[in-house]
Computed example of a mutant assay.
Amino acid sequence: MSTFYDIPVTTIDGKDTTMGTWAGHALLIVNTASECGLTEQYEQLQELFEGYMMRGFYVIGMPCNQFGEQEPGSNAEIADFVQSTFGVEFPMLAKAEVNGENTHPLFAHLKEATGGEDISWNFEKFLVNDSGEVTARFAPKTEPDDDEVIAALEEILPI
Rank of each mutant, 00 (worst) to 15 (best):
G68C: 08
T85V: 05
K95S: 01
F90N: 05
E77R: 10
E101P: 13
S84Y: 10
P105C: 01
T114W: 04
F86A: 05
N65M: 05
E133I: 11
E101V: 11
V82M: 08
T85D: 14
E133M: 11
T135L: 13
A96E: 09
G87F: 07
Q70M: 07
E71M: 10
K111S: 09
A108K: 14
E117V: 13
K111W: 07
E97M: 03
I119V: 15
A139N: 14
V134P: 07
G100E: 06
F81H: 12
C64V: 03
E124D: 08
E97W: 01
H109Q: 05
V98Y: 02
Q66G: 12
Q70E: 14
T135D: 00
D130M: 03
F123D: 01
A94M: 03
P105I: 01
N122D: 06
A136W: 00
Q83N: 08
K111Y: 02
F90D: 02
F126S: 04
N122M: 09
E101S: 15
Q83F: 09
F107L: 10
L127N: 06
G73H: 00
Q83P: 00
F107K: 03
Q83V: 11
P91W: 13
E133D: 14
D118E: 15
T135E: 08
Q83M: 13
L127Q: 08
P140G: 14
E69A: 13
F107H: 00
G68A: 04
G68V: 05
F90Q: 00
E69M: 08
D130T: 09
E117Y: 14
G116V: 09
T103P: 02
K95F: 12
F138L: 07
S131W: 04
N99F: 03
N122Y: 09
R137F: 00
A76Y: 07
T85Y: 14
C64P: 02
F90H: 14
P140A: 12
E133H: 12
E112G: 15
V128E: 01
P140C: 06
